[in-house]
Design a protein around this nucleic acid. Structure first.
Length: 212
DNA sequence: GTACAGATTGAG
DNA sequence: TCAATCTGTACT
């Protein structure tokens, strides 16, 4: 079962979407091949009240305006002058809420990639090390954008319509007991009230490969 | 025209 | 733990 996610998925309350994105698949078409990754870590940003949000206080700039689009659009921006970060707008038009995709698990469905990885893993003995090696490609927001070949050209892209990137439900159900909620990463500047809110969500099984 | 952020990464 | 790295952004 492979079903593209449509508008009604994204326009729900942001915290729901952030949790439900776990276990969904990002499909990225590059030429005639597909890069596929399972979402395993997300973070919710709920402006304008959220001090950690780029839209805190209702601020609108050319950089953050995509946050205000109705659910299902890409908000992508550069950090540290070199890393892109992919967010998905959520909720209604005019509401600056989004979900940052922090980590995915590569799905090695492409022959060439399988080949690369099997070479890479040739000298690694255990299954757990193989998994670790694979995840090293995409276990951070900057890394996954690099792997999926995402950049500014995806700014504002509509995930419900795009022919080069979309999300799929492949029938995988992540139960609440498999979801871990923690404080968001790297936003101490927002002060304790906001930085302590447990708006980061991850699949427990992958915890050991993700940021602490 | 320019100071500076920055929701990171990777090396040590 | 901490420094590298750099350009887009948001101001003057």
């Amino acid at each position: 079962m492979k079903k593209r996610l449509f508008r009604n998925f994204y326009t729900r309350p942001t915290l729901e979407v952030a949790k439900d994105l776990l276990g969904k698949y990002i499909i990225r078409k590059v030429g005639n091949r597909k890069l596929v990754g399972k979402i395993i870590e997300t973070e919710a940003y709920i402006g304008p009240k959220d001090k950690a949000s780029h839209a805190f206080g209702g601020k609108i700039t050319p950089r953050n305006k995509a946050e205000y689009l109705k659910g299902g659009h890409i908000y992508i921006y550069l950090v540290y002058g070199m890393y892109w970060q992919m967010n998905i707008s959520t909720y209604k038009s005019g509401k600056p809420e989004c979900v940052l995709i922090r980590a995915i698990e590569p799905v090695l469905n492409d022959y060439k990639i399988k080949n690369q990885i099997s070479k890479m893993n040739k000298f690694l003995a255990s299954e757990s090390k193989n998994t670790n090696q694979k995840l090293k490609l995409t276990n951070g927001p900057g890394k996954l954008c690099r792997w999926l070949k995402l950049n500014k050209s995806f700014y504002g892209e509509d995930l419900t319509k795009s022919k080069r990137i979309w999300l799929e439900d492949r029938g995988e159900k992540i139960s609440p007991s498999q979801i871990l909620a923690t404080a968001r990463i790297g936003i101490d500047y927002a002060g304790p009230y906001w930085s302590k809110r447990k708006w980061r969500f991850l699949i427990k099984d992958f915890k050991k490969y993700l940021a602490k």
